[in-house]
Amino acid sequence: MINRKKTRELFIGNVGIGGDNPIRVQSMCNTDTRNVLTTGTQINALAEAGCEIVRVAVPDEEAAAALVEIRKNSPVPLIADIHFDYRLALAAIDAGIDGLRINPGNIGGEDKVDAVVSAAKDRGVPIRIGVNGGSLDKVLLAKYGGPTPEAMVESALEHVALLEKRNFHDIKISLKSSSVLNTIAAYKRLSEKVDYPQHVGITEAGTLVRGAVKSAVGLGILFWEGLGDTMRVSLTHDPVAEVGVAWEILRALGLRERGPEIVSCPTCGRTEINLIELAQQVEENLRGVKDVFTVAVMGCVVNGPGEAREADIGIAGGRDLGIIFRKGEVVRKIRGAENLLPEFMKEIESFLEEKRGK
């Protein structure tokens, strides 16, 4: 049983973070923010996939100006990603952004920090302090001999102190590293010192498979320890895929569910159908479904229903015969490999209509 550490509650737009709220799924657009149409399209795709908060890069004034229209049409709260230039933070707040990702120690003197904090207070805009192991201050690197967990935590606390000094506490903190072990150690150390919500992730995790594995291991351990209030799976891939992996991590730990869970057996020498293709096609056809239920795609008509008896609905295929079952009980038989997918999808449609009370 996972016992989550209760952190301070804050709101990114209308989405509650920390406190008793569930772990929120976040991603980041990889579009040019100055292009309102493409950025808006990607935000909508992310939201449809289950993303609850989206971050967008704000590299210049043109991007900041585009936030007005982007925010107006966004179905989810947006966070502006700002580096170094406090004027962009002020412009993003004026544009109606819901949250800032900015490190106050890197934006200039006290007056610049004052200006950003004052504007954020006035508009109720939380600030995420984002420490990255690959871009720590040289002084801290020298002090600790590298981007250690201790160095990352000290960096975060230095930024936190600048905000607390100005009586600003709507703070979220991230401590990201490409090292799974350093990331875990840093978040655990931070949780002993402050109760601000944590945004967790393994940065620069890699391409789809490698990045998903590193993220699942790192985030899975953090969640098991009760840490983490928002999450991002960082992949060198379409951001929509990040959202899918995030939900599967949450589902695997029993923390949250969204859409069908698809279980399928590994192929073996007894498999007489193209099980890999069938499972992929079922997954693709169900991609937009938000109902929570379990689907099994099995490669053996003899053992399949029994092995997947807990599935709400499933299919098992043999050379000349396929069977559709519910909770381990056979409900239909199908002849012809070409009929397996279409007939199974019809049965799932019927199942969903019953489930929805239609």
Rank of each mutant, 00 (worst) to 15 (best):
T33L: 04
I12G: 01
G105D: 10
G13S: 05
E225I: 07
T38M: 14
S74M: 13
I323Q: 11
V131H: 03
V76D: 08
A337Q: 15
A246K: 03
A212R: 02
T236F: 11
G322S: 15
T236Q: 09
T294H: 09
M345F: 10
K172D: 01
L140H: 10
P239G: 09
V68A: 11
E52T: 04
L253F: 13
H159S: 11
E9S: 15
A47R: 00
G16Q: 09
C29I: 01
T33C: 09
L163T: 07
D111R: 15
A185P: 09
S215G: 10
A120T: 02
L78F: 00
G133Y: 03
V263Y: 09
N339F: 12
L340F: 15
P104E: 00
K165L: 12
H199T: 06
P77I: 04
V209F: 13
A49S: 03
E110D: 15
F293G: 12
D32K: 14
L208A: 07
I348L: 11
V153R: 01
A115H: 09
V243I: 13
I102R: 05
L157T: 08
D291R: 06
V153W: 03
E52K: 03
I315P: 10
P59L: 08
V200E: 00
G220I: 11
G218L: 02
V113R: 06
L321C: 13
